[in-house]
Design a protein around this nucleic acid. Structure first.
Ligand SMILES: NC(=O)c1ccc[n+]([C@@H]2O[C@H](COP(=O)([O-])OP(=O)(O)OC[C@H]3O[C@@H](n4cnc5c(N)ncnc54)[C@H](O)[C@@H]3O)[C@@H](O)[C@H]2O)c1
Ligand SMILES: NC(=O)c1ccc[n+]([C@@H]2O[C@H](COP(=O)([O-])OP(=O)(O)OC[C@H]3O[C@@H](n4cnc5c(N)ncnc54)[C@H](O)[C@@H]3O)[C@@H](O)[C@H]2O)c1
Lengths: 238, 238
DNA sequence: AAGAGTTTGTGAACGCAAGCACAAACTCGA
DNA sequence: TCGAGTTTGTGCTTGCGTTCACAAACTCTT
């Protein structure tokens, strides 16, 4: 769902190696750890140190980094500032990405107020909501605009990434409008499965699913299993 | 990180088959789709229908369901209500899980106000914050308590699942306190890597990481790559 | 200059997950 | 009762991700 169909044979971007999806998902974690090290004044670190501070296996870390190139020095380790820059460049966060947030309710407010955006390569250029009552408000220095302004804002700011924080019923409609406006990456917080055309990436963040996964394991730990087949409700096999 | 060491040879819960992690992560999605079907009055559905409404391959769906048992009927499909119950039972959400949220700031407020909790098997029994100024507040009918009440609340309500929505610097300390109090599953929203003892599950939700993954793919799409090796900053190889 | 110690980069083995393809098991109509 | 049509459950293949283990490449001490 994340990968758009790669042109068979030829790489999408000339000169850019193909980085495995699992590695891409870990690069931001390394980036964060390297930023912390840089802030602490550390100039150099080994794969072992970086691995333990990010909670991964050191061999996995080295293999991940090897997809970017050979940026380490044997017997020494990695130059923190240099590696940090290389990862940021690969991810594409050396410049800021303009982002719009649609649905400024409970969650939308929290997202708009989140300071971690700016420091990690993103800039909220607009907050959109369909409810006219919301549209007087100013959240974190950005004023809430009517949803119909989407096209204009996307065009003016060259927005490629959109965040959906509306109720589930509205999510597909919002996604459609985003795609029409030219957005090609969507982060979806609504508990809904979105259908989008090829070439558009969707990632979902679903709190309930995360909790339910925890509940599954929790149930196994405590051995608190419900009886295996308590009642053959309407139309059960037997 | 999610899987605690399984006793080698013997299953953790007698009579409970081992369900692959990837399948566990999809069961909540199926559950949600089945709930929607049930609400719409649909009595029966095929794997093809359920698959397309959840965005997965139908063969994968059938294989996932086969880990729970043989609950379908060939030539017919699955009984919606029956399958729904079976999935809910396997996940462990036939009864409500008591949950505490620590850190009632921007995000904590949104989480506390989130109605999707109750309807999906979870009940917020307490909101905790270290800041005394927060502790007069009542959010969504639950009043904010001092963080030091954690032990008592966990004990009184039998809480097994905790949510961390504090700043990153406080997250490890909060996690330690949770573990001490008896919590064995943690959902962490702070951008920090948590160290916990064996037997404790941690899942993290990290907005910045999700956005950075999108940015990576976006960069490849537009071909907007930074120059491959722009400057050999302090200590670069060559 | 050489040997001991350290750390990277990666070949190779292994295990998990995805998807195809089909037999088995069902329904329905004649 | 039989045959055509439908849909499940799963064996098998393929691909991806993780981990081990080690040679290559470096530093440092003597
Ligand atoms: N609040 C949470 O902590 C939380 C957690 C997980 C998931 N979610 C999900 O995030 C979404 C938002 O949750 P919330 O609690 O902020 O809900 P909310 O009702 O507080 O806010 C939704 C906002 O979206 C706006 N909206 C509705 N339809 C719209 C449309 N078509 N176009 C533009 N804006 C529209 C509404 O006016 C409202 O301001 C929901 O889907 C919810 O399930 C929320
Ligand atoms: N706001 C968002 O949308 C968002 C998005 C992604 C991630 N996050 C992360 O979620 C966390 C919370 O974000 P926020 O915007 O709500 O921050 P916030 O500063 O608004 O709220 C943090 C709350 O935690 C409380 N707190 C601090 N130390 C504590 C401790 N030791 N014990 C108990 N409570 C403590 C504070 O009093 C405050 O009320 C942060 O780590 C942030 O990076 C937030």
């Amino acid at each position: 769902m994340t990968e758009s169909t790669p042109a068979p044979g030829e790489p999408r971007v000339p000169g850019a190696r193909e980085i495995p999806e699992a590695t891409v998902a870990r690069l931001p974690v390394y980036l964060r750890a390297l930023t912390a090290l840089a802030d602490a004044g550390t100039a150099t670190c080994s794969s072992e140190e970086l691995a333990s501070s990010t909670g991964v296996n050191s061999a996995k870390l080295r293999k991940d980094l090897s997809y970017l190139g050979s940026y380490g020095t044997r017997g020494v380790g990695y130059d923190v500032a240099y590696l940090r820059y290389q990862i940021a460049r690969q991810i594409g966060v050396t410049q800021d990405w303009p982002v719009v947030i649609v649905g400024i309710g409970n969650l939308g407010h929290a997202l708009a107020n989140y300071s971690g955006f700016r420091s990690r390569g993103f800039r909220v250029v607009a907050l959109l909501d369909a409810d006219p009552d919301r549209q007087d408000e100013v959240v974190a220095g950005v004023d809430v605009r009517p949803f119909r302004d989407l096209d204009r804002i996307v065009r003016e700011h060259g927005v490629a990434i959109g965040v959906i924080a509306t109720p589930a019923v509205a999510a597909q409609n919002v996604a459609d409008r985003m795609v029409t406006a030219g957005i090609t990456s969507i982060l979806n917080f609504a508990p809904a499965v979105l259908a989008v055309p090829d070439g558009v990436d969707v990632r979902k963040v679903d709190l309930s699913i995360e909790l339910q996964i925890l509940a599954y394991h929790e149930q196994r730990k405590t051995g608190a299993a419900t009886d295996p087949d308590p009642l053959a409700v309407q139309g059960g096999v037997a």
